[in-house]
Amino acid sequence: MSKARVATEWLMVCSGCHISLLDIHEAILDVLAKADIVRSPVLADVKEFVPADVGIITGGIRNEHNIHVAKEMRKNCKIIVALGSCACFGGTPGLANLYTREDLFEKVYKNCMGVDNPLENQREPRDDVPPLTEKVAPLSSVINVDVIVPGCPPVPELIAQGVMSLLDGKPLELPNQSVCEPCPREKDHTKIKQLKRWYRSAGEELDSERCFLEQGYICMGPVTWGLCDARCTKVGVPCRGCHGPLNPDPVKGSDPGVDAISFLGTLSTNVPVEEVMEAFGNDPIPILYQHQFPYAKINFKERDKK
């Protein structure tokens, strides 16, 4: 049997998805027994795009160069895998969509502490650097994507399973469950009596065995796809939704922010709205959508310029 040809690429990334890929450790040797890595800029020097059976793309779209690379990969690869929440949903950098490009430039190249900008009649670098797209967008906004693997980053075990099932041509059944399923914290299924900021957990008695929400801390676990084995809540930190919505589909799928507002509305009817807002630091969007703001189903307006 001839070996499968696998290519990897990265667009607007932190590199964490590629690291998670390497974190399958020895299993990478099993992958290499079945596949040749024909191109992977982080690991190898092949610079041109080459034909491949599987193209793994991490990162979302932030500039014109990202679009070019995504399209070249689509042309060259039979199957495109969007690996990680940036590629799937726009990711944390998608929070930049709360602002315009101009706002970003103004802050980074003009208003940042200690900035020394001698450029005349302009603010941001423009000499042969790829222009930013107007908004951060998921990979599926510019090319057809065949497989999505969410997570920030996807856990190594999931990547190993996914890659091996692709190489073996066998479908992979993923559990349709929220983070609450694998989360061992006890739930009384009672109403939420109060909501408060996360930093306050240092001062008050935080029950290490009990559901964060029932103790009054915002946790995105109930509306987040539980492919992560609840690793954050197991080490005492509430979920911030890194594996994306329970039912990820750009058209018919669920919207974690809307779902979270819905469950908070249902469970915290006795909590004054000011207190709810306070728990979010008076700005719910970055917590509701830390990893998927560009994917939100609600059309949010940009922030007022300040």
Partner: peptide, 30 residues
């Protein structure tokens, strides 16, 4: 030449400060 920009310094403003250790690692996966 470095040909990318994400603008973290912009969208990190306005956050509850205790969220920062959960957001800023996303600058770098290594």
């Amino acid at each position: 030449k470095v040909v990318e920009l994400r603008g973290f310094e912009k969208f990190l403003v306005g956050r509850p400060v205790e969220e920062m250790p959960l957001i800023t690692p996303r600058m770098c996966g290594i």
